[in-house]
Amino acid sequence: MTKDLSTWLDTLLDELQGIEVRRKSSRRIRVDVQPDALPALLELLRGRASYVHLSAISCVDWIEENEFELVYHVWSYEIGSLVSAHTRIARDPGVYISVYDIYTPAAFFERDIHEMFGVFFEGSPDMSKFILTEWDGPPPMRKDFDSEAWVNAHFDFQDYQPDWLKEIEAKGGGVAVRPDEQRFSRRDVDAS
């Protein structure tokens, strides 16, 4: 059974035009594919070669090429290999098609990528905020988002002043409370 399925995979990858296949090891295969052919590739991998488990969808922001790279990692329980399908979409407007109809787990990853990178997936069941519920800035995982600059622009800092320490020391120390100010001190116990 396992052998049959892997021959299925080889014929399948030969049949498809315009994809580049690279075997990285016995259980890792890298496929580079055009964005319009990726859903068809995933459908064939799932339907004909038993790649039923979508392990993850990763997004990489290649800002110099002005592109987002989407990587779909799919695993076959029967063949025992992991196919990573890489595709690149334009950074602007950053819209792509959902694969939720092929893999149910895609809903979480697409929602996450939408939130963190601003890529909109058409046809995904829920594109609302999930982790960054109260965030109204730009998508933070993009390379042009500078966390430090954002913090400096939106939050106030209080400079540390060594004088504070002197003031505290002048009052008789840090957090320690003087015995006569303690509500339940040993002194009361001894007095009674």
Partner: peptide
């Protein structure tokens, strides 16, 4: 690292 992405099992179990 240029990008790191972690896929935890709970991303499926705790949500969908």
């Amino acid at each position: 690292p240029y990008r790191t992405h972690v896929r935890g099992p709970s991303q499926m179990h705790a949500v969908q």
